[in-house]
């Protein structure tokens, strides 16, 4: 297992570099540039040129890329074009809230979707199953922004028990209860979207396994139904479930852009949006780089989990 992990980590390096090259090209190919944001027609052209020179935008692309790579090797992403703050600092501030939001939602999603999915499969074609599949269908189809706005209307404006957005009460005392209150709505929206999709996967995967012969054998030798379902069946159903949950992590980071906008959650989703609109290349490159690392790390983590779930999986 260990040599496999080391090999995977080594392969990740050229992959990462490839990703940064692609990203760099895409970011720079997008029409418009940071200096074009000078819309004031009274800005003298010399100043616009001076700014381009200062930001290094007049260098050939390949030089710009190597300058960026050099900064990266020294452990930084450079300075933001808009706020001139170090990009590592900007992203550092934002990644915490996003991780908090997404990991809590993912954990809750897992804890809810897996048992319900199993139950739904075990009780296939019962009223419970119909209700759950119906609900998960609704939850999957409901757009997140719609659900988010609906919940804000209901709980923040109508009942006035939860805040409309933000991570903490600005100007208020910063305490744990306050943070939890702010988490409830965004976490609910993300969790509902996750369980909607995942229940269906878990259910389908379990149904496949439940039909297998070895389960009939297990039941025949008199094992308790609980053990049959949760030990023998679930373990075998886990592989496809791990895959879809693994795919969910990068999706969550992207998908939270909408949620972060609606709930003014100060995470990297919001930051990404802002830096795209202001063509803040260094921040964008930093964000892309981190996203790439997260995706690669998730893939590796999933492979390890396969092994944990099913020792028959061999990595050579």
């Amino acid at each position: 297992m260990l040599p496999y992990i080391v090999r995977r980590l080594l392969i990740a390096i050229p992959v990462l570099i490839g990703i940064t090259i692609l990203n760099f090209c895409i970011v720079n190919l997008a029409p418009g540039n940071p200096v074009d944001m000078f819309i004031d027609p009274n800005t003298p052209q010399q100043l616009v040129e001076a700014k381009k020179e200062m930001l290094g935008l007049n260098d050939p692309l390949i030089i710009q890329y190597f300058k960026w790579l050099w900064q990266l090797l020294q452990g930084g992403f450079g300075y933001s074009f808009s706020s001139f703050a170090p990009v590592t600092h900007i992203i550092g501030e934002r990644i915490g809230p996003t991780l908090m939001l997404t990991s809590i939602s993912l954990t809750l999603g897992l804890l809810i979707a897996i048992p319900i999915g199993i139950l739904s499969a075990v009780k296939q074609n019962t009223r419970f199953d119909y209700i759950i599949t119906g609900l998960s269908f609704i939850w999957t189809s409901m757009p997140q922004f719609f659900l988010g706005l609906g919940l804000i209307y209901l709980f923040a404006l109508h009942f006035k028990i939860l805040p409309t957005g933000g991570m903490l009460t600005i100007g208020g005392d910063d305490n744990f209860a306050d943070r939890i209150k702010h988490l409830i709505l965004p976490v609910s929206v993300l969790t509902i979207a996750i369980i909607g999709k995942k229940i269906r996967y878990v259910r389908a995967s379990m149904l496949d396994v439940l039909k297998q012969d070895y389960l009939r054998t297990a039941r025949a030798k008199g094992l308790h139904a609980f053990i049959v379902t949760n030990k023998h069946a679930l373990r075998n159903a886990l592989i496809p479930i791990i895959t879809v949950f693994g795919m969910e992590i990068p999706l969550l980071l992207g998908g939270s852009i909408i949620i972060e906008q609606i709930f003014q959650w100060p995470g990297i989703g919001q930051l990404t949006m802002q830096s795209i609109l202001s063509r803040d290349y260094p921040t964008l490159m930093g964000l892309n780089f981190i996203a790439a690392i997260i995706v690669l790390a998730t893939n590796l983590f999933m492979d390890i989990l396969y092994f944990v779930a099913d020792p028959r999986v061999k990595y050579n």
Partner: peptide, 24 residues
């Protein structure tokens, strides 16, 4: 429809007939 930065890029290079925005 374009985001502002793209629009300004196109407008500056004369790649438009009409455009609409607010000045300061």
């Amino acid at each position: 429809k374009f985001d502002f930065s793209t629009l300004i890029g196109k407008v500056d290079s004369g790649d438009y007939d009409l455009t609409i925005f607010n000045r300061d």
